[in-house]
Computed example of a mutant assay.
Amino acid sequence: MKMPVIIYPPDSSGGRHVRSGTEDLGVAHSQHDVVELLHGAGLEGIDEVEIATTSVIDWHGGGPDVWAPPDR
């Protein structure tokens, strides 16, 4: 994976869209989901601990511990 991964803020269901460059990798509802999406995109060897610290991932709207929908 050449492009950085962007994980967008939680939507109204708590899902976070995951994108790499122009490729939509899917929607994650947990850290485990993020890892699975990254593995599916070819970023093998990353785990739930590393997603919090790797420079490959740019978390928008909160880090890997934020999954609740925003308050209105």
Results as ranks from 00 to 15, higher is better:
residue 26 G to A: 03
residue 26 G to C: 05
residue 26 G to L: 07
residue 26 G to W: 07
residue 26 G to R: 05
residue 26 G to M: 04
residue 27 V to F: 05
residue 27 V to G: 00
residue 28 A to I: 04
residue 28 A to C: 10
residue 28 A to T: 09
residue 28 A to F: 03
residue 29 H to T: 11
residue 29 H to Q: 12
residue 30 S to L: 12
residue 30 S to V: 14
residue 30 S to G: 11
residue 30 S to F: 13
residue 30 S to K: 09
residue 31 Q to I: 13
residue 31 Q to A: 15
residue 31 Q to K: 15
residue 31 Q to P: 07
residue 32 H to Y: 08
residue 32 H to N: 10
residue 32 H to W: 05
residue 33 D to W: 09
residue 33 D to Y: 13
residue 34 V to C: 03
residue 34 V to Q: 05
residue 34 V to G: 02
residue 34 V to S: 02
residue 35 V to T: 07
residue 35 V to S: 02
residue 35 V to A: 02
residue 35 V to K: 04
residue 36 E to W: 04
residue 36 E to A: 15
residue 36 E to D: 14
residue 37 L to F: 07
residue 37 L to K: 08
residue 37 L to P: 00
residue 38 L to G: 06
residue 38 L to K: 06
residue 39 H to Q: 09
residue 39 H to I: 14
residue 40 G to R: 13
residue 40 G to C: 07
residue 40 G to I: 07
residue 41 A to Q: 06
residue 41 A to T: 08
residue 41 A to K: 07
residue 41 A to L: 05
residue 43 L to I: 12
residue 43 L to D: 09
residue 43 L to K: 02
residue 44 E to R: 15
residue 45 G to A: 09
residue 45 G to T: 07
residue 45 G to Q: 08
residue 45 G to R: 14
residue 47 D to C: 04
residue 47 D to M: 04
residue 47 D to G: 15
residue 48 E to W: 01
residue 48 E to M: 14
residue 48 E to F: 01
residue 48 E to V: 08
residue 49 V to L: 10
residue 49 V to K: 11
residue 49 V to C: 00
residue 50 E to D: 03
residue 50 E to N: 03
residue 50 E to P: 00
residue 50 E to M: 14
residue 50 E to T: 05
residue 51 I to W: 03
residue 51 I to C: 01
residue 52 A to M: 00
residue 52 A to H: 09
residue 52 A to E: 03
residue 52 A to D: 06
residue 53 T to H: 11
residue 54 T to E: 01
residue 54 T to V: 12
residue 55 S to N: 08
residue 55 S to I: 04
residue 55 S to M: 01
residue 55 S to W: 01
residue 56 V to P: 01
residue 56 V to I: 12
residue 56 V to E: 09
residue 57 I to V: 13
residue 57 I to N: 05
residue 57 I to F: 00
residue 58 D to F: 03
residue 58 D to R: 14
residue 59 W to H: 07
residue 59 W to F: 03
residue 61 G to A: 08
residue 61 G to I: 08
residue 61 G to F: 11
residue 61 G to T: 11
residue 62 G to T: 10
residue 62 G to P: 08
residue 63 G to R: 11
residue 63 G to W: 13
residue 63 G to A: 09
residue 64 P to H: 15
residue 64 P to V: 11
residue 64 P to E: 06
residue 64 P to R: 14
residue 65 D to G: 14
residue 65 D to W: 10
residue 65 D to R: 10
residue 66 V to A: 11
residue 67 W to V: 09
